[in-house]
Design a protein around this nucleic acid. Structure first.
Length: 532
DNA sequence: GCCGTTTTCGGCCCGACTGTTTTCAGTCG
């Protein structure tokens, strides 16, 4: 496998192994290159063929050579050497909560402990007692973390995190004196998966907010200081809360939204202007510049405000500087929801309510998908002549499956990839007009990997077939990197929030579209789309 | 290992928090 994702994985692994060796700056250098490669909208092989690997941020001479080795042989000798030197379990130990490279290395070299399991045995055998730096509290914590490491997943799908986030924000607003509240981090950037939630608040009574946060149902307190508190929810999601002074809110929001690479770039711009940006203020010498809003932070470095979804150091700083930031898709740009499944039990009253919600949400067209032939006919009859919104009845079937005979042709076709790879030939399958492909994962819990999504977007460019974005990027819908690849190639997307009721304001599918630098002109169901 | 409209060498974010250590090291974000 010589995909971008596989190359990135190799560099991430090199970084982890170098961490164990105690290298100070190399791991970050390899990680930076890995992140750049992950967000590349082109195949690494194509970039190498043009001899432009060095243009990838974070790729210099040494990493360019390793990329070429990888593309040629599928392996990197340097990585092989490191693997031979360091047991894989030591990296796994480093991953355990509260353990880092120093500790993992110490256990390995001083105690001969080479894996999390071996560490557990060593603790039970009392071999950690008396080791310098490891008191009873720390040992107990490690023991707990070892138990948790096996069961808790690290990152979870965006949608799942959104449900938790909404709940927590609503509760804090209701039960504590918060003035401003915002979720920062990768959730705000609408990454496909979220590792933790970073909640920022301002309040005149911080203690009360911290208390309310600690009292959230099912919460376990991980740590609590005067300005910062961390809990773990019942299902294992870590949530950080930071209480800030209002004059620092913009600086903190910018700082904790990231991404890391974006912040490195903004800080370097600040340095060029004789400024420093930290999580509290923009500082010129001793002077604190206004830092209560993000716009002020960006203004101080001569930039317009940059939408959080594209803060990934993938050209947004340059675009902001040149005044060419894209006008990203907004929820209000969507004039149609084209992916709404109708339940067999939905009678005329329920359908009318759906239509009303859609109209209330500002939609001009609602696309309904029945589950059976009979329902199809019933819906077509019901939909006839309706307007504001007008109703279209479509059909969903696995990609490649034959379309059943209908008395009236479906208005649109959702073709489910269902975990399959795209056909090798773009034109192997004649597509009905009004077709697009979605459901890339094999089931709701299994995401399609970046390789498969990239393959579908390559296919879609050639086949001139739109692909679907949903609230579960990488799972049922396209991820942002592949979506950007698709529209850069001239392709289009259908943005489906999969609902018209209260869940619609979440706009997670729109978030993914924004992350992919998508403007409304590439969106089939947005106002400005030139038409099929 | 990467990077450079102040540097091709010398930087690379740094503050909060915890446990243990009596002044700090490690982790985390």
């Amino acid at each position: 496998m010589k995909s971008n994702a596989a190359a990135a994985a190799a560099f991430h692994e090199i970084a982890d192994l170098l961490d164990v060796l105690g290298e100070k700056f190399k791991p970050e250098a390899y990680r930076r290159a890995a992140r750049s490669i992950e967000s590349l909208t082109e195949d690494l092989g194509a970039v190498a063929a043009r001899d432009q690997l060095r243009e990838i941020p974070g790729v210099g001479q040494a990493i360019e050579e390793k990329i070429r080795e990888f593309l040629r042989d599928g392996t990197i000798p340097y990585l092989e050497k490191l693997r031979a030197e360091i047991p894989a379990g030591v990296v796994a130990m480093m991953r355990v909560e509260g353990l880092g490279p120093k500790t993992a290395r110490k256990f390995w070299t001083d105690l001969g402990v080479e894996s999390p399991n071996a560490l557990l045995e060593a603790i039970d055998a009392g071999r950690l007692a008396g080791v310098k730096g490891f008191g009873p509290v720390k040992i107990a914590k490690i023991r707990t973390a070892l138990g948790a490491a096996a069961s808790s997943q690290s990152r979870r799908p965006l949608l799942q995190a959104a449900l938790v986030a909404e709940q927590i924000v609503a509760t804090l607003k209701e039960r504590s004196p918060v003035t401003q509240i915002e979720i920062a981090g990768s959730f705000r950037r609408r990454r496909e998966t979220v590792g933790d939630l970073d909640i920022l608040v301002t309040s005149s009574e911080p203690e009360k907010v911290l208390d309310a946060f600690a009292a959230l149902e099912g919460a376990t307190i991980v740590l609590r200081g005067p300005t910062k508190e961390t809990i773990r929810t019942r299902d294992g999601l870590q949530v950080d809360l930071r209480v800030l002074a209002p004059e620092s809110f913009g600086a903190a929001l910018q700082y904790f939204t990231g991404s890391k690479d974006h912040n490195v770039a903004t800080r370097s711009l600040a340095r060029d202007r004789g400024l420093k940006i930290n999580e509290y203020f923009v500082v010129r010498g001793e002077e604190r510049l206004p830092s209560s809003t993000e716009a002020e932070i960006y203004r101080s470095i001569g930039l317009p405000w940059i939408p959080p979804e594209i803060r990934e150091a993938r050209g947004e700083i340059e675009a902001a500087r040149a005044g060419t930031l894209p006008v990203l898709l907004e929820p209000g740009d969507l004039v149609a929801e084209l992916h709404l499944h109708v339940r067999p039990s939905d009678g005329a009253a329920e359908l009318a309510a759906l239509a009303r919600s859609a109209g209330d949400a500002g939609l001009r067209t609602l696309g309904l998908i029945p589950g059976s032939h009979e329902e199809f006919d019933r819906l077509v009859a019901w939909a006839h002549g309706r307007s504001s919104p007008s109703i279209r009845v479509g059909w969903e079937r696995p990609y490649g499956a034959e379309l059943p005979k209908f008395s009236t042709a479906p208005a649109f076709h959702v073709l489910s990839a269902n975990g399959l790879e795209p056909p090798a030939q773009a034109d192997s399958e004649p597509l009905d007009p009004g077709s697009w492909v979605g459901h890339f994962g094999s089931d709701p819990d299994t995401p399609a990997g970046p390789e498969r999504l990239a393959a579908w977007s390559r296919w879609a460019v050639a086949a001139k077939c739109p692909l679907e974005l949903t609230p579960s990027p990488g799972y049922d819908g396209l991820d942002a990197v592949s979506a950007r690849r698709l529209v850069e190639g001239g392709g289009a997307v259908v943005v489906s929030e999969l609902g018209v009721g209260p869940e619609r304001p979440r706009a997670l599918a729109v978030g993914t579209a924004r992350r992919a630098w998508i403007t409304r002109s590439s969106v089939l169901n947005a106002a400005a789309w030139p038409g099929p």
